[in-house]
Design a protein around this nucleic acid. Structure first.
Length: 187
DNA sequence: AGTGCGATTGACT
DNA sequence: GTCAATCGCACTA
């Protein structure tokens, strides 16, 4: 599977999670692609215990812990054994909003999942979800269908990286208030 | 065994 | 706008 194509495809799709008495659903509005040979990626130097999930067949979760405080949710994107992944950076809360807000200390709706660390916190994502299949419904978390057609997709440099920083591998739904980053990167 | 550093966030000026 | 917190992991030796 082509990682960039999948990164764009995921905009407008949903992430679903089982919660007590129902579901939490978010509509993805921002992603970043991390490619093979990409110095900014976690797998630039090959497989390690931490990044092994990025080498699973496309559609598996790669969850990692960063800055001593935050989990990040990624989707593996290539065939088994090949590196490639997509960071889910932001979603628009659709369902289970009260449950997500309880996880986040009742911040305003707009800030609930605007940023990868916030998104994972709202969704209750942790290392337990590393490696799970996001395409089947056997697990607790999976990728769902579109709830509303997406608007135009914007492209920009990726946020918060220092290597290979010029590459245009960030994708977002134009105009969405749920996209992270400065205003200039949301138009 | 020690060290440096993040695919960030939230608090503060 | 600036800036510190925080810790698991990969790299060096």
């Amino acid at each position: 599977m082509n990682t960039v194509k999948l990164a764009r495809y995921l905009i407008g799709k949903t992430v679903v999670r089982e919660i007590p008495g129902g579901r939490a659903v978010g509509r993805i509005v921002e992603t970043e692609a991390y490619l093979s040979g990409d110095a900014a990626s976690h797998f630039f130097r090959g497989p390690t215990p931490r990044n092994k999930s990025i080498y699973l067949a496309h559609g598996h979760a790669y969850v990692y812990f960063c800055y001593g405080a935050h989990f990040m949710l990624n989707v593996s994107a290539e065939r088994a054994g090949a590196g490639g992944g997509i960071l889910i950076r932001a979603f628009e809360p659709i369902e289970g909003i009260a449950w997500m807000q309880a996880n986040r200390g009742n911040v305003r709706l707009r800030d609930l999942a605007r940023g990868p660390g916030r998104l994972a916190a709202a969704f209750g994502i942790s290392k337990l979800h590393d490696g799970v299949d996001l395409c089947g419904k056997e697990g607790e978390v999976w990728l769902g269908s579109t709830v509303r057609p997406r608007d135009k997709i914007g492209t920009s440099v990726r946020i918060g990286i220092t290597k290979d920083a010029h590459r245009l591998l960030r994708f977002y739904e134009k105009g969405s208030p749920f996209v992270s980053g400065p205003k200039s990167l949301r138009k």
